[in-house]
Design a protein around this nucleic acid. Structure first.
Lengths: 218, 218
DNA sequence: TGCTACCGTTTTGGATCCAGTTCCCGAGCA
DNA sequence: TGCTCGGGAACTGGATCCAAAACGGTAGCA
């Protein structure tokens, strides 16, 4: 009998989710060395599934690994952050352009549902909820492009900067920007205007990266 | 005392290299289920390092994983192959544009050395040698862009189609194309002409993907 | 004082063993 | 004949234990 929140079917998947969350939420700080025994103990599993989960996270770029020295939570420099956003700019533009001709009511419905949730969470200042809804909004669109590798790569880029993005949502000025930009992009999508949507998303990201740049230097 | 070819410092790294080679060389066929016990035995290690290596390969997109069902060598459909080449087109163009202003004699020297090796191998029909030299040529350029994530992503895209690319090099008409396109791109790079180089590389990839498309349907 | 070599401790890497799930095949039945 | 339901074999998932490498502190020495 599975509990309500039903844990994943394997310990490594459970651990993967927990550790990813801990890193992207900032609970495990950048630069921290990961003590396998301690972390495995805290999650009540042995080191084996933890190590496999860490290998996955290494592939996603959330941790680095050196033989016989173990894993460490990555530290992003300003240059790293800019690289991630530049790659997102390029790849998400491709996803949007590929998706627009394939959009149907089902996808648009999902986008609008996600957007409604974003707006509600933004109003309440529920940062974590908003981050989740925001991700659903963007990925509902990306997935419509029918390019699975592209979606996966974009996903890993998002993951690698999750901790910083939550910071951005903390400002309520910023949250209002997000809502407005989403609305504008959604209108362009409804009109079949891929280039218009791409421009709005570019502005969306640029605002975030510039704000973060300021905060990180401090 | 390390042997000449000196194995990696850990079993998982050794296994990773061996399995990756087996997959990209076609020795492990697409669609094959991976029997951990048998494969680990053949490589004379236990299943533990093999499983960690497989997790890495999953991250690279060379194998797929399903809980309790194990790993399987990925099968690329025609649509998959086109997606990979489209992503390479976008990402490699970015890498070239970023690299050109940063090129110096050291990089150009490496490019020319790699190109000389490509030409020698092409003449002799040494497919495997040519594949290696070709990769060094392209990645020497990509790495000059100083965008480590970008280089890594492009690397995984290359890996995922290695088996097919060797097929392309088997034709000596194709090998001549490669040599000519490299020369043209190199001349453009020397002249600081990023857009010219990008165009040549685009032609380079387009020729490969069209040829492969023909062969795969057969 | 500063450097180096050594040794005990900590931590990671790997092998083995056991548990749980899936797969495969055949018996029973409609 | 075709379908469903065991039941055992095969395979994956995970825990424990041991080996090997890295770390940290101290003693010895220049």
């Amino acid at each position: 009998m599975a509990e309500v929140g039903s844990r994943p079917p394997t310990a490594q998947q459970f651990v993967l989710g927990e550790v990813r969350r801990a890193i992207t939420s900032g609970e495990l700080r950048p630069g921290t060395a990961i003590r396998q025994e301690a972390l495995a103990g805290r999650l009540e599993v042995s080191r084996v599934p933890l190590r496999e989960a860490l290998k996955t996270l290494e592939g996603e770029g959330l941790v680095t690994y050196r033989a016989h020295r173990g894993y460490r939570v990555v530290e992003l420099s300003m240059a790293d952050l800019r690289e991630v956003y530049r790659l997102r700019e390029i790849l998400e533009a491709e996803a949007v352009r590929a998706a627009v001709p394939l959009l149907d009511e089902a996808v648009l419905g999902r986008l609008e549902a996600a957007q409604a949730e974003v707006e509600r969470a933004a109003g309440e200042g529920a940062v974590a909820v908003m981050a989740g809804a925001n991700r659903r909004f963007h990925f509902a669109l990306f997935e419509a492009a029918a390019m699975p590798r592209l979606v996966r790569i974009i996903g890993t880029l998002w993951d690698s900067t999750d901790a910083y993005r939550s910071l951005y949502y903390a400002g309520d000025q910023n949250r209002r920007h997000v809502v407005a930009e989403h609305r504008a992009a959604l209108a362009a999508l409804r009109a079949g205007d891929a280039e218009g949507a791409v421009r709005w998303f570019d502005r969306h990201r640029a605002a975030a990266v510039e704000t973060l740049a300021g905060q990180i230097e401090a």
